[in-house]
Simulated scan of single mutants.
Amino acid sequence: MSAEPVCARHLRTAAQLCPHLDGHPTVFLAQSAPLYGTTGTLYGLGADGVQPVTQPEPPLPYRHPDTGCFLASQ
């Protein structure tokens, strides 16, 4: 089970459509939810042109210098 943040207004839709919620969301109430970053794939220039380089395990912070070469998936 994943802990993907979802607002109350879109909880039912997200539970039905998001494979990461497995159809069984857990509700938590938070005082704040600061934006941090995103997951995805980092791309770079290789011998055959633009290629995927890595998929970092922790989320890449929004202000990270590599965000210009990063394709976000979540």
Rank of each mutant, 00 (worst) to 15 (best):
A30G: 05
P19L: 12
Q51W: 02
P58W: 11
Q16F: 01
V6A: 15
P58H: 05
G68I: 01
P5S: 11
P56F: 09
A30L: 10
E57H: 06
Q74L: 09
P19R: 11
G46M: 10
G44F: 05
R63A: 07
T67P: 01
R63T: 03
A33G: 07
T41Q: 13
A14S: 04
H24I: 03
C69L: 07
P59C: 11
A15G: 00
P56G: 02
A72F: 05
P34M: 04
R63I: 00
P34L: 06
A14N: 01
P65H: 12
G40F: 08
S32Q: 10
Q31V: 01
S32F: 03
T26A: 13
P59N: 11
V53F: 12
G44I: 09
V50S: 08
H24R: 08
C7A: 13
A8Y: 15
Q31Y: 07
L17Q: 03
F28M: 05
R9A: 10
R12H: 03
T41S: 13
A14D: 02
R63L: 06
P25T: 01
P61H: 03
S73K: 03
Q16N: 04
P52F: 15
C18I: 00
S2L: 11
P61C: 11
S73E: 08
D66E: 10
P25E: 01
F28Q: 08
T67R: 15
L17K: 06
L60W: 03
G44S: 05
F70Q: 03
E4V: 07
E4H: 04
T38I: 06
P59S: 14
T67Q: 11
S32W: 04
P25Y: 08
V53T: 07
G46D: 12
V53K: 09
A8E: 15
G40S: 08
Q31G: 03
A47K: 04
V53A: 11
C7S: 14
P5I: 06
L71H: 02
E4G: 01
A8C: 09
Q55H: 13
A72G: 02
G68M: 02
H64T: 00
Q31S: 07
G44R: 11
T38G: 14
L11K: 08
D48H: 09
L42T: 01
T39L: 14
T54E: 13
D22V: 00
P61F: 08
E57V: 12
F28Y: 14
V27I: 14
G44C: 06
T39P: 00
A47V: 03
L45T: 08
P58D: 07
G37C: 07
T38K: 14
G40P: 02
L45A: 10
A15Q: 00
L11M: 07
P56Q: 05
S32E: 09
C18F: 00
P56Y: 11
T41M: 15
A3L: 15
T54R: 14
R63F: 01
L60T: 03
P34C: 05
A47E: 13
S2D: 05
L45P: 00
V27L: 13
G37T: 04
T41F: 14
C7I: 04
P25H: 02
P5F: 12
G37D: 05
P59E: 13
E4R: 06
G49M: 12
Y36K: 12
V50P: 03
L42M: 06
P34V: 02
T26N: 06
T67D: 05
A3E: 09
C7K: 15
A33V: 01
Q16I: 00
A15H: 02
P58N: 10
G37F: 09
V6W: 15
